[in-house]
């Protein structure tokens, strides 16, 4: 049981060689690889930490945004509701105004149409009545009626003595050198003409130069004209009175109706 010093020395050398070899083939490469892995893991961890921090920051940002949004949402809703309400009111008001305008326009148009129609109706009715009566008088006129008309005319001439008309015609005759036109709707018999001429001489102091004309323009009747002045009797006067009365009647009737409609 002793130490072999050659073996002892050789074993020391062997151990040192083994130490060098293992350092070269085992510890060196392993250490390097482990360091690399550690660095990689550390860098990944660092990266993950940074990402986590970034994510955390983003989360906070979004949470803040969400909170802001939540806070402003109610306000926005209230504003929107208020605006909608105002718009609704405004639109309703506008619609009502438009409806009123349309209604007023329509009523005005209706009234205008009604007025026009009534006016036309009135005009036509009056014209028709007057025309009808005029034609009736003209068609029914006979010698007796014509004589009556002449008599009426003569009577009117006689009654003119006290009137201002007489003076006016008198001055017109003076101005026109006694020219006077006697217009009748029917031909006057000669004796009548003579009677009228004599009467005119009698009434007016001037020498009257009478001209007898037949014209249906004046309607049924007879009249005298001198320098723009005229006087006589015809049915047209009555017919115009009639027309005036009908007009008055229509107008009063329309006013009442209008008044009732407005009520």
């Amino acid at each position: 049981m002793n130490i072999d010093w050659f073996t002892f020395t050789a074993q020391i050398i062997n151990f040192v060689i083994l130490l060098a070899l293992l350092k070269r083939f085992l510890y060196g490469p392993l250490h390097e690889v482990m360091n690399k892995r550690e660095e990689k893991v550390t860098s990944r961890l660092e990266e993950a930490r940074q990402k986590l921090a970034a994510a955390e920051q983003k989360r906070e940002t979004y949470e803040q945004k969400l909170a802001d949004f939540e806070a402003s949402k109610v306000e926005m809703m209230n504003t929107a509701r208020r605006e909608v309400e105002e718009t609704k009111k405004e639109m309703l008001h506008q619609a009502r105004e438009e409806i009123d305008t349309i209604q007023q326009n329509w009523e005005a148009a209706l009234q205008s149409e009604k007025k026009t129609f009534i006016a036309e109706l009135h005009q036509q009715t009056t014209d028709n009545i007057v025309e009808l009566l005029n034609r009736l008088i003209q068609e029914l006129a006979n010698s007796t009626l014509e004589e009556q008309a002449i008599n009426k005319f003569i009577e009117k001439l006689r009654t003119m003595d006290k009137k201002e008309e007489k003076n006016a015609i008198q001055s017109a005759l003076d101005y026109g050198e006694g020219k006077m036109m006697v217009i009748s709707s029917f031909p006057l018999p000669d004796d009548q003409k003579k009677q009228i001429r004599e009467l005119l001489h009698e009434i007016f102091t001037v020498d009257v130069n009478c001209t007898f004309t037949v014209s249906s323009v004046i309607g049924f009747g007879i009249e005298i004209r001198a320098q723009g002045w005229k006087m006589g009797w015809n049915a047209k006067v009555y017919l115009e009175d009639l027309k005036k009365n009908i007009d008055d009647l229509f107008n009063s009737d329309t006013k009442i109706k209008h008044h009732v409609a407005h009520r």
């Binding site: 049981m1 072999d4 010093w5 073996t7 002892f8 074993q11 020391i12 151990f15």
Partner: peptide, 11 residues
């Protein structure tokens, strides 16, 4: 071997 053990102890 005592030589080996001694060599290691010497190391």
């Amino acid at each position: 071997s005592l030589s080996t053990a001694t060599a290691l102890a010497a190391c």
